[in-house]
Structure formats: C-alpha cells, structure tokens
C-alpha cells in the first residue's frame, strides 16, 4: 500500500506546502517567536523536516529526537494545537483530499507526547 507521503506527491508536496505553512506559523503571534530565528534558510529546512515527517515520508527521527528538539521550548497544548491547525489549513489550501488530511493529522497527533515532553 502506498504511503500518504507518496499519494500526495512526495517531496514536491513538501516543497509546495513549506512556504504556505511557514507563512502561517510566522504570522501567528502565539508561536511565531519560536520560528523567528536569524537563520531563515535553516528554519525552512526544519519546516521541510517537519512536513516530511507529518506526511509519513522518509525520516530518521526517533521519539527521543523529537523530545530533544523541542524540550527547551517548554511547549503546551496551546502551541501544539496552533501548529496542528496551521498544518491542517495548509493541506486544505492545497486541496489535499480529506482522507489524506485525516491520515496526516493522525501522524502529527501521534508525536504529541514527545513534542510536549509529557
């Protein structure tokens, strides 16, 4: 069975989504400060890593990596839901079929405990 990553277009889907998603995140005062570092190229690369993972694409991140990457930010459900919301509306904007959106939101939800270090 093809993964949702392949079904929605693989790396090209990530490229199409990254600017839209990053624009939403930067424009959201609740979370923009986390993404507003001087090195925007690096940020774009991280957004791509995030999307690839959420789309179920090839990645090498373990749950422990997710914990380490996020622990210094002291995130709560408010932050998590904001990011998830922007992910969902990005997918809707790109006309990704609802069944794939559901799968992707499921993958994102499965990282909840690691991202929030609970």
């Amino acid at each position: 069975m093809a993964s949702v990553f392949e079904a929605i277009g693989g790396a090209a889907a990530v490229d199409a989504a990254v600017d839209i998603f990053y624009r939403k995140v930067l424009g959201d005062p609740l979370i923009s400060k986390f993404f507003d570092s001087v090195d925007m190229d690096r940020q774009t690369a991280k957004q791509k890593a995030f999307l690839t993972m959420a789309f179920g694409g090839p990645n090498h991140y373990t749950g422990q990596d997710m914990r380490n990457a996020h622990k210094h930010m002291k995130l709560t459900d408010v932050h998590f839901n904001a990011v998830a919301g922007h992910l969902q509306s990005t997918l809707a904007e790109l006309n990704v079929p609802q069944q794939h959106i559901d799968t992707i939101m499921g993958i994102a939800a499965s990282t909840h405990d690691d991202v929030l270090n609970v």
């Binding site: 990254v18 600017d19 990053y22 624009r23 930067l26 424009g27 507003d36 925007m40 774009t44």
Partner: peptide, 10 residues
C-alpha cells in the same frame, strides 16, 4: 520576513 509574508517565495 516582511517580503516573505507578502508572498515572495522563500
């Protein structure tokens, strides 16, 4: 950041 938010591609 401003030009990106106005729609210039990264």
């Amino acid at each position: 950041k401003l030009v990106f938010m106005r729609g210039v591609r990264s």
